[in-house]
Design a protein around this nucleic acid. Structure first.
Lengths: 349, 349
DNA sequence: GGGTAAATTTAGATCGTTCCAATAGCTAGG
DNA sequence: CCTAGCTATTGGAACGATCTAAATTTACCC
């Protein structure tokens, strides 16, 4: 009874239509739950859909309707737990909204970022969530994504002439206040010689964190030795390698505000190598509250940024933008929360 | 000179064709680098492409050619660094091959997994890489993905009647040998009362790791107390909570092979709470070698599974499958490597 | 210049869906 | 009986690319 599904080819609307003797248009209406179709017809069609194992071809529908059902998510470092959590949050919300996530990872390489964006653009995403690689250029990015597709910039400002990208939405962490909180905390613990350790001075987030640090130091009339501003790549490995620079000058610091948790954990190792015990002989703070922060030795005082919630927020922001493409661009700065743990001890007597 | 790009609509082949007075077919040939077109024509067309800012519509091309340029990647826990690294590896290779990654995260929920798969299938991926949620059912999965799309099962076997899914490729870790290595190592350190801690007994990876553990114990004639097989969810939190069960029976173990690193780190906390110092009073091993393992206190002996390399491998396997859809299904079991660190101390005297 | 082969180009159908305008069937009102 | 106004249904043209087969131009040789 009934004819059989096609072989080696996907089942289409036409197959269903032929299978129950109605037009393609009617089947299409059924699929979209239109109230126009008769109850009995609907039942027959739905039965046939099931019988032939039909799967909707959203690409074809999108083509015809000139719509899109995907969002591109391009991250500078997916392997970083912070961004992994972020991605999970994004995907959670997008999935609920019926969108699908086109993933791209740039591994902090600008060429790759542009290549990935180019490739994703060919799939016509409705919007883009981008955490840019360091050192990217606004012009280049703009020409890669075009002026049509709404973009949400996450986590970092881009380099170059920003004025051409001022229609983009932005979602940033309150880096400055975060670093300020950490510095204030160390000062209230009694520290006076406090370093700012790690990060690349050229990146926007590093600049902001340094500004918060400087603000707190200045407010308390504490001097900042130039040797206390140490740069290193934002990962554990380089943080270990560069840690000696903290102690090269005459007046060694007794505490450090670190660029992020990875750097702080690296610095802990470096301290151990010098025979210093972090959390007793030296105080430090991180930034991000990655999972390891709570279980390191000692547990790391840090700033919680709840990346999964940020991911959800990013997805919601881009949804809002899709609903109202002409609304003025919005910049969101989310507060961060200081978590005090054992690593930020008072100065060693 | 030249007409202007269209407004509010994307530039299409026809726009280019009209712009330099050739047919759509010719422009299409230029785009695909066909040697058929004349040098001068090609130059003119390419100039026009640039001038109008054309972006290729891959969805339309895929529709016509009945091809696909995406791979679905569905993970049971994207926030887990292990899977994040894996995803980064997958995306690396797929990006290089011209495919785009459709991301889906099931958060270990079976309903969500099925929903996500359903939604992704509508976008017609060329293949699927799936790390299934625990407790899923082969039949249900099969009906969600259909029989057409090649699927690579990663990390876990699915539940239910597997015989219907024996055309799927598989990529698993050598869980059994990994746990065996860890157990052998602890035994060689002098331990005799060794527990197996964490994981859900029903999951395939847990079964395999337990088997490796049991094998080693048996080979050395060591008894396994039933109190030493403790279940807990594979995360830090539950691992802390359940750790007391290790010490409820008369003969407490002196060491534990843990289901994975998260569980091992949780157990460390639990030990501390009982006044035991891991790496001195109690030895333990993990599984995965997540980033924290190297910096925990003490550093964790564990089994390296190099998730990024696994991701690359998974992507390569699915590419092979696409090249030869009728090749016999292949099951790959990758070896794991024991990393000895300070947590696996000899028994405390 | 004619003829043939090679090099370029192209019209038109097609992929699987949705939209539009048109059509049919039906009831009710005059 | 005719018309108006519903309710359901439908054919055919899109969407933006590719493919096929055929048409056109160019090149070459005698």
């Amino acid at each position: 009874m009934g004819n059989t599904p096609p072989v080696g080819r996907k089942v289409t609307l036409s197959d269903i239509a032929a299978g129950c003797d109605v037009s393609r248009a009617t089947v299409s209406l059924v699929l979209r739950g239109s109230p126009l179709v008769n109850k009995h017809t609907r039942a027959r069609v739905e039965e046939e859909l099931r019988r032939q194992g039909y799967v909707y071809n959203r690409a074809a529908a999108n083509l015809r309707r000139r719509t899109s059902s995907s969002i591109a998510l391009v991250l500078n470092d997916l392997a970083n737990p912070f961004f992994a959590e972020f991605a999970a949050g994004v995907d959670e919300v997008l999935g609920d909204t019926g969108y699908v996530t086109l993933l791209g990872s740039s591994s902090e390489s600008i060429e790759r970022e542009l290549a990935v964006l180019g490739s994703l653009m060919e799939h016509g995403p409705a919007g883009i969530i981008l955490s840019p690689a360091e050192g990217g250029d606004a012009q280049q990015l703009l020409s890669a994504v075009g002026g049509q597709t709404p973009l949400l910039l996450f986590n970092r400002e881009v380099g170059g002439d920003i004025s051409t990208c001022d229609h983009w939405d932005r979602l940033f962490l309150d880096n400055q206040r975060g670093a300020w909180l950490a510095t204030e905390h160390l000062i209230s613990q009694g520290h006076q010689r406090i370093a700012f350790y790690g990060g690349h001075g050229s990146s926007s987030s590093c600049k902001q964190r340094r500004a918060g640090y400087a603000e707190a130091m200045q407010a308390h009339g504490l001097p900042v030795d130039s040797h206390w501003m140490v740069e290193c790549a934002p990962n554990r490995l380089d943080a270990v390698a560069q840690s000696e620079h903290l102690f090269n000058s005459g007046k060694a610091p007794t505490a450090a505000v670190c660029y992020n948790d990875a750097v702080a954990l690296g610095l802990m190792l470096g301290l151990h190598q010098r025979g210093l015990q972090p959390g007793r002989d030296f105080a430090l703070t991180g930034f991000d509250d990655i999972a390891e922060a709570a279980v390191s030795a000692p547990p790391l005082t840090t700033l919680a940024v709840t990346p999964r919630a940020r991911g959800r927020q990013a997805a919601e922001l881009i949804m809002l933008r899709l609903q109202d493409p002409s609304a003025p661009p919005r910049q969101t700065i989310v507060p961060v929360q200081l978590l005090v743990r054992a690593s930020s001890c008072p100065p060693h007597a």
